[in-house]
Computed example of a mutant assay.
Amino acid sequence: MLGTHARSVRRAFFAAGILAAAVALAAPIGCGRNQNAAAPAPGEPTKVKVAYLGLTCEAPIFVAHEKGLFKEENLDVELVKTDWDGLREGLASGQFDANHTLIMYLLKAIEKNSDIKITGGIHTGCLRLQVGVKSEIKSPAELKGKKIGVPTHIGSPPYMFASRVLAANGIDPSQEAKQVTWLAFPPDALAKAIEDGRIDAVATSDPIGTILVGKGIVRTIADQATDAPYSEEYCCATVVSGQLVKKNPGAAAAVTRAMLKASKWVEANPKASAEMAVEKKYIAASAEINAQALSHLRYIPGVAKCQRSIESAAAEMKKAKLLNEATDPVALSKRAWVDLEGVTDERVLAMKVERIEGGGRPALLAPREFAALFDMRKLCCGCCCLGE
């Protein structure tokens, strides 16, 4: 019979599933090449298409649009909602000009020759590896021979993070090696699976990870936000279509600068950013839940650190067999990156953003208090790392 903890978490995950389904069903628009970012007449704004998924961590995209930061760069931006496959394919084809998303997700696509370029770091991560509260497992090194659950499907960002952690602890995470067993579950089934002992550990993203902790179901043994070297890396980065770089590098630089400045704005005003995203209907969540989730991330934009993040992620992805055996991580990192005019750490440091009264960082709720928000059947905020 389903326990009280599991029933409440299932209700929370059911809400999360509604959002995930909505994102997954959002059909990519068209398949032709976007011609909007061609050089305009002198003085006229450049038309640019920026894709988004409707996720909490995309706050800088929404802020740049609503607060006029794209306009400051003389850009006429159209925001286009898509899904994960549509995002990857749209950026590669030039249908979309820009976005910001997961570095690991981008590297896998670039390895497959997707014509996309990473241009700057946006925020730190929200991925975790967790075990049951009654488990005797104390560290990732003890997961050899164990069963690990992942949300949605094998290959999702939580799976990628967990694979990196295992490889760093001497465990071959590949399915062929059979040193661990990977099992995919619907997000709402993870709690019961770990309570029933069908899995020994779970790879999660926030808010799922915090909900499970708050419900007293799991404890964390690896955290992307706090554990080195992951805590020193960017989770998500600005990305532009390779075609935009070729035909209008100035526009590629401008859209990158706008999102980096917006990242700074979000860090200064997380509560205001969260409320705006809900009010403008970019996010299907309550403002309270969105503000709490957003405040767990750190938006400190940067350039050189982003390049180092790409190199580190590529090297560890190769070690974890998330990249092909023949792939050179250094060469892949160089192919993934492009330097753009005016996109520098000096320029980012010089960017000034306003501070909205009452819009700063709210007091973070304890995991149990945060989890309780979902008992009120409010729709989950989602996360950039929930699934691929």
Rank of each mutant, 00 (worst) to 15 (best):
E111Q: 15
A331N: 04
E58Y: 08
A285T: 05
G149I: 00
S8P: 00
L340F: 09
T204D: 14
I221F: 07
P187C: 05
V348C: 02
A331G: 04
V63P: 04
D223P: 06
A98V: 08
A6H: 02
K117R: 14
F161E: 08
A24N: 11
T46D: 03
A371N: 03
I18D: 06
V239F: 00
A253M: 02
L79M: 08
A109P: 04
A167Y: 08
G197P: 13
K378A: 03
R298Y: 08
L87I: 04
V303K: 08
R257Q: 12
L294R: 03
W337M: 10
M104H: 11
Y282R: 10
A371Q: 03
K108H: 07
L260E: 13
A177F: 14
V48Y: 09
G149D: 03
P187D: 09
G216D: 13
A64E: 12
G43Q: 11
K144F: 07
V245C: 12
G302T: 01
K319Q: 15
R335I: 01
F70C: 09
Q292W: 11
D196G: 13
A109H: 05
T344Q: 05
A326P: 02
N324P: 01
A336T: 09
E232I: 00
A98S: 14
A285S: 15
K67W: 05
D172Q: 14
C31T: 11
E267M: 10
G32R: 12
A272M: 10
K144D: 04
N113Q: 15
R298Q: 13
G170A: 14
K178G: 13
G358A: 06
I18V: 11
R88Q: 09
L386G: 00
S273G: 08
G132A: 14
G86H: 09
K378H: 07
L166D: 15
N34C: 07
A237C: 01
K178Y: 09
N324W: 05
C235M: 15
K147D: 05
K318L: 14
V133W: 03
L107M: 11
D223N: 15
V330I: 07
E288Y: 03
A193Q: 13
F62P: 08
R88S: 10
I18M: 10
V239G: 00
K134W: 12
V353D: 04
V278C: 13
S114G: 00
P270R: 06
M376F: 02
A304R: 13
G170Q: 11
I61H: 13
A277S: 15
L107W: 07
S174P: 10
P367H: 01
N74F: 05
L106I: 09
L323C: 05
G43E: 05
N169L: 12
E72P: 02
A331W: 09
Q175I: 13
C381E: 07
A313K: 03
E58W: 12
V240R: 00
L297G: 00
K178D: 15
R368W: 02
S139K: 11
G30R: 09
A285D: 14
Q243S: 10
G359Y: 09
L340P: 07
A109M: 04
I171G: 15
K318H: 15
K319Y: 01
A326F: 14
S241L: 00
L102G: 09
